[in-house]
Amino acid sequence: MITASFAQEMARYNHWQNSQLKEFLVALSPEELTCERGAFFGSIMGTANHLLWGDWIWMSRFDNGQGPGGGIPASKSLCADLSEWLPLRDTVDQRITEWATALPDGVLTGPFTWFSAAKNEDVTKPYAQCVIHFFNHQTHHRGQLHQMLTETRSAAPVSDLVFLPEEV
């Protein structure tokens, strides 16, 4: 279905997108970041927190490392502000890159099992499907952030995969 090189390219894309996103978030006032915007996770900060939490929880599943704790409802409060969020975003992005770099093709053809707190049970799905979901989840929430940034009259990051720079 997919290869390790797909995951590596998506990890590069994730890093590029988040690098751009950080620049736009830093330019906003705390009020703009936390303003309720009617999004599923409320504000820009709430959505950015959930995106980071989702990346972190999936990485803990993929690499058996530390996870963020808490569940989906609390995910929008992962970090109180950008001073907490920015370094944690960098740490998780580095972890994603390291995981993708070390990912062998063979593992993608097998099953993947994790404990889902949302379902309160073990779930087994094809590993490739889980990896695709992981990267799709990022894109989904970055799209929401793009919309909310536009509402602030901010420019928003370039998100087209075809414009991913060779070096990120």
Rank of each mutant, 00 (worst) to 15 (best):
Q8I: 08
F41S: 04
G110P: 04
L164A: 07
F41Q: 04
L161G: 09
V123M: 10
F41H: 04
G106S: 13
Y127Q: 00
E32K: 12
A155Q: 14
G69P: 03
D122C: 08
P30N: 03
L88P: 03
P30E: 02
R61N: 09
V131G: 02
P157F: 11
C79Q: 01
T47G: 09
D122R: 09
T124M: 08
W16T: 14
L149N: 03
E32Y: 00
W99L: 02
A4D: 00
A27K: 15
E151H: 07
Y13F: 14
T150F: 12
F24C: 11
N120H: 14
A118F: 14
E32D: 14
E98N: 15
K119R: 12
M1F: 12
E23W: 08
A7C: 12
C79G: 03
E36A: 15
L82F: 00
F6N: 04
E9Y: 05
A27L: 14
F41Y: 13
P87F: 01
L28Q: 12
F41N: 06
P30K: 03
Q94R: 10
N120S: 15
P87S: 02
L161C: 10
G42Y: 00
S154V: 10
L82M: 05
T150H: 14
I44V: 14
V131A: 05
S83H: 06
R95K: 12
P111R: 05
F135H: 06
F6P: 01
H50S: 12
L28D: 07
K125P: 00
F163D: 01
S116V: 03
I2P: 03
W99Y: 15
E151Y: 01
S19V: 13
V162G: 07
A39H: 05
C35A: 15
L33F: 05
S77Q: 09
S5I: 09
C35P: 04
D81E: 05
A100G: 06
N64A: 12
H137D: 06
G65I: 03
F62S: 07
Q147G: 13
L21R: 07
L86M: 10
L149V: 05
G38S: 09
W114C: 12
L149S: 06
C79M: 04
R89L: 13
N18K: 09
L21F: 01
G143R: 08
E151M: 13
H140T: 13
L145H: 09
G42K: 01
T113V: 00
P87Y: 01
P87D: 02
Q8F: 04
T152R: 15
V168M: 15
V162N: 10
L21H: 08
G65Q: 07
R12D: 15
F134G: 11
S83G: 00
A128T: 02
M148T: 04
E32F: 02
S5Q: 10
S75G: 03
E36G: 09
G71Y: 05
G143I: 08
L88G: 07
R142A: 10
E151F: 02
H137I: 01
T150C: 13
N136S: 09
A4R: 05
A7V: 12
V131S: 01
S43G: 10
A48N: 04
A155T: 15
W114G: 08
K22F: 07
R61L: 12
L161Y: 13
P165D: 13
